[in-house]
Amino acid sequence: MIRLEPALLLGAIGHGETGAVVRLLTAETGMLAAYVHGARGRRLRPMLQVGNVLGVDLVTRGDDRLPLATPHLLAANLAMLHGPVALAVVDHVAALISTLLPDAVPQPRLYGMVDALLMAAGSGAAAHTLGIALARLELALLDELGLGLDLSSCAASGAREDLAFVSPRSRQAVARGPGQPWASRLLPLPAFLIGDRDADAQAVGDGLRLTGHFLARDALAGTRQRERLLQGRARAVTLLTAAA
């Protein structure tokens, strides 16, 4: 038996009469699926809500069968208390991470970012804060998937300063001067994605547009749930930008 703690619950799909297959994210083992007996019973149902932080005792059953998980609650995600923005963010992040991350690959950096964002949504953080965290998380996710943006220097001049755009084709940053004549064809690069701590509402919108473009074009291309995931993301972004 292996004890996984803490593990973020990112999805639970009913299986059989009372059980469910859960999708968990941990720092050390990354994404993993497991079967929970009695998941839809009175005792476990409240525990198996998306965003909750669990401790899980895992029993493996051979290579061709899902491990059995016995969960216990470490911290409940209370996004339900904080309205549509928090719920849409939790829903989108859980679905996106659960769909895109490969199983059994350690994710210490992403785990920390997902945990922080879900916790922020569950504790009623402002939409502005959630928007910044979401754009940073999506950027890190692209990076983790091998689809990261090259934001280190300008594709045209090689300059490392005043990077203001990203090429929607090559994923490379472009500095303000060389990029200005083609500004309408480039994606704005907000400073908070390359080091600055603060961002205004415009920058948050730009950041989410930037990551959204590459998620839709590259990361989600060919995935079964592409349209649904983009629909969920669009709702989260609309609510975030309206509330920011």
Binding site: D91, A95, R228
Partner: peptide, 10 residues
């Protein structure tokens, strides 16, 4: 219910 993971949209 809406669920991006299960592919259920509006």
């Amino acid at each position: 219910r809406l669920s991006a993971l299960d592919g259920i949209g509006p």
